[in-house]
Design a protein around this nucleic acid. Sequence first.
DNA 1: AATGAATGAGGATTCATTCAT
DNA 2: TATGAATGAATCCTCATTCAT
Lengths: 197, 197, 197, 197
Amino acid sequence: MTIEHATKKQTDKKNAILTSALALFVRQGFHATSTASIAKAAGVATGTLFHHFPTKDCIINHLFLTIKQEFADTIISNSQVTGNIESDANALWQNAIDWAISEPLKQKFFLQFSLSAEINAATRQQAMNGILGFIVALIEEGQQQNIIAHYPVDLLLENCHGQYLAAICFFTDHPELGKDTSHRHASFQLFWKAIKA
Amino acid sequence: MTIEHATKKQTDKKNAILTSALALFVRQGFHATSTASIAKAAGVATGTLFHHFPTKDCIINHLFLTIKQEFADTIISNSQVTGNIESDANALWQNAIDWAISEPLKQKFFLQFSLSAEINAATRQQAMNGILGFIVALIEEGQQQNIIAHYPVDLLLENCHGQYLAAICFFTDHPELGKDTSHRHASFQLFWKAIKA
Amino acid sequence: MTIEHATKKQTDKKNAILTSALALFVRQGFHATSTASIAKAAGVATGTLFHHFPTKDCIINHLFLTIKQEFADTIISNSQVTGNIESDANALWQNAIDWAISEPLKQKFFLQFSLSAEINAATRQQAMNGILGFIVALIEEGQQQNIIAHYPVDLLLENCHGQYLAAICFFTDHPELGKDTSHRHASFQLFWKAIKA
Amino acid sequence: MTIEHATKKQTDKKNAILTSALALFVRQGFHATSTASIAKAAGVATGTLFHHFPTKDCIINHLFLTIKQEFADTIISNSQVTGNIESDANALWQNAIDWAISEPLKQKFFLQFSLSAEINAATRQQAMNGILGFIVALIEEGQQQNIIAHYPVDLLLENCHGQYLAAICFFTDHPELGKDTSHRHASFQLFWKAIKA
DNA sequence: AATGAATGAGGATTCATTCAT
DNA sequence: TATGAATGAATCCTCATTCAT
């Protein structure tokens, strides 16, 4: 009980810190956000923040990995594998767009920090290879079935990523089109036509 | 004469500041680069830097606009308009890749700062609409000829940008492939297949 | 205990900062005194100074209010209310002169900053109305008893202030006369003759 | 002609600098006003400012002396010496108040800088003794005639100054009372009752 | 006399991080 | 585990002044 309680409280504070950090990083940028302001927004002392994360950099890298994982889990778990690569890709794509629309803060976080210097190489590597490994797998499967074009996988992966960022950039600028079927269809078509065999 | 001389010296210092800033921002990031270090690298006093640019932010925004313009000028002037949209698009795309490869510093600058918070909305707007206006024109021309798919122009423009960043990301990670025809062809194919009708 | 200790240490540092600031502001002027030099003189880090006072301006305004309050408290507590307005006024006046002589630093602070731009309007207002309210009360009482002339209270208050500053200006320039009964008497006479009915 | 012209232009620029400096010092304070902003407001180059005044301090001290002299000249020339000390004193006092009301910028300049550290001792000395010497003369004359109280002249002079500052402080805070005869009379009465025998 | 670009020391303030409690 | 006062190096920017033209 006591332990559970303590653990819960600890998790609460850690989560509060992460939640506040996400909001502030997105709104103000990483360097414009002080650790003191994160702690204050989270309702904890500055010391507490450094008790949970040794440095400020750790916070943003932790955030990046966590959100990437959550993104991956969400779009996978909401999709059903039909075996038809295009259908599967479409399901994943639409889920990814849905996720971005339903989590605007996290989506903006991706836009701002996916290519930024604050995320270190190791984190980026882990996200691309580890967490998003299922996309690589999907691409390779599609190539074996001659459904996806036989370009280098690295190039295709990078291209997927680039097109996804472009799509959520577009839907961020035009939030009213997020529910519009034709635009969502168009965004997938662009993507799919690029990579299909 | 006198005026020319004075103007030249002034322009020299201003350019030296911009050149040093570009190198340092790319190597270390915006916030890790102090104004003092920029001035020192440029061989001018700190005061001189602020004589030419009121704030540090102005430097990076000026840099963004300047480089974007240089990029646009270069890829246009090296292309010949054949009237065939696909050929023209291919020429522009290959020029754009060439430019990125021949100007690695400026290309990395784009990768790092195109989506970052340091570039303000007005600058981004001006770059997209003003400087890259000829791309919009090309897309619209292509749509009239039924060669480019009739997706919303904003979405197409965003998609071009995203795919271009993805491509130079790839060639940055694999510099040895920059001269490989098949990879360069592949990168254009991905792009073109996406947007063609 | 722990709390008391912490509070005491904190108050100590804050007081050390205020004491150093007072001495330096008077000796060198506000703008000639750097926050770094205040902190150094107080034996604390520069950061500590800004932990206690958000800006340099806050220090001088805080100082102004604190000293004004101390001044008011001292001259009141050393006087006995006899009910005879002139005696009371004389007692307050002499106490005020005594205070100025015994606190040369604080007196010079008044001379230099009472009318300066560094003290903001709100502070000045608070000092005049809030802290020195008992003087207004005394003037009004004197007017009801027909002992003090029926000039506008604001004008009288301003006049008291002006004459007091003039008196301490004089005693500052002639420190040896500070104990001379006739000069001190003269300074009160000037003041009293001005305002009496 | 040419010389006259040149001299006139020179004087024009010098005056423009002084006029701008006065306005800016009063509005923003001495240290908050940069030499660059003075030059800009005066429509001259920064170098020109330093061509006329070796340092920034020289500007404010020059201003102080000039304005003090103008003040003295004005209140004297508008008064007629009747030989009756009280009438003469009243005339001077009312002229002094008039001057302050008609020259709000210069009056505020006095309020802010009469006691400030920016005006150096020599300037202050010169102003008090040299320019305002006629006031000392008047006081001494009054004492010989047994009309002004036999307090030390220094104390009386300081007191006059203090009361004058207090009076213009009051009329600054209540500009609508500047033309009210009873208030103006009261302000002189306060002053005169203080110093009369 | 007039200009204004250049200078660089100096200043206020910030902030990630530490540590005694 | 939590706290928040304390730290001091680092940063952006200012500004009086100079000087070549």
